[in-house]
Simulated scan of single mutants.
Amino acid sequence: MDLNTVIVLEQEEELDTVVDTSQRLGVRPVIGLRAKIRTRHSGHFGSTSGEKAQILSVARKLQRLDMLDCLQLLHFHIGSQIPTTSLLSDGVGEAAQIYCELARLGAAMRVIDIGGGLGIGYDISL
């Protein structure tokens, strides 16, 4: 279908499905990882962020499979309606450290997906 698709893993166990399917189809997948960063806020969905996922373990497994070049995206999401840009800045800083470490390991990193979340007035009278 000629689509540019990135498969974003939330859990380490999902990697096996992606690897098995891509080998069966004879394609090299473009893989992203979701980082559960420590930066949090108290707004709507703020509790969805938390400790880092086992990103290093996934990268090492991809390295063993000679597929580390397939890892190209890092995703994180602090939450919705983030009240200050300083929280977003903290999250981007933390994600940038993870991104750089993955690049140092040999991943072909290309994208940091910050997942949105800046405050939007939901009051219809605005």
Rank of each mutant, 00 (worst) to 15 (best):
D20S: 03
T21R: 01
S22W: 05
R24Y: 10
L25H: 04
L25Q: 11
L25P: 03
L25R: 04
G26W: 06
G26N: 05
G26L: 11
G26I: 12
R28P: 01
R28F: 11
P29G: 11
V30Q: 08
V30P: 01
V30K: 12
V30R: 11
I31N: 06
G32R: 05
L33M: 10
R34F: 01
R34Y: 00
A35R: 07
A35V: 06
K36Y: 09
I37W: 02
I37C: 10
I37Y: 00
I37A: 03
R38N: 04
R38T: 07
T39M: 01
T39V: 13
T39S: 13
R40L: 03
R40F: 02
H41F: 12
H41Y: 10
H41Q: 12
S42Q: 05
H44F: 02
F45Q: 11
F45A: 08
G46N: 09
G46Y: 04
G46W: 09
G46R: 09
G46T: 05
S47V: 14
S47I: 15
T48H: 07
T48F: 04
T48C: 05
T48I: 11
S49D: 10
S49A: 12
S49Q: 11
S49E: 03
E51H: 04
K52S: 14
K52C: 13
A53I: 15
A53P: 03
A53H: 14
A53L: 07
A53Q: 10
A53S: 14
Q54L: 01
I55C: 11
L56D: 13
L56Q: 05
L56K: 07
S57F: 10
S57D: 07
S57K: 08
V58K: 11
V58C: 14
V58N: 13
V58A: 15
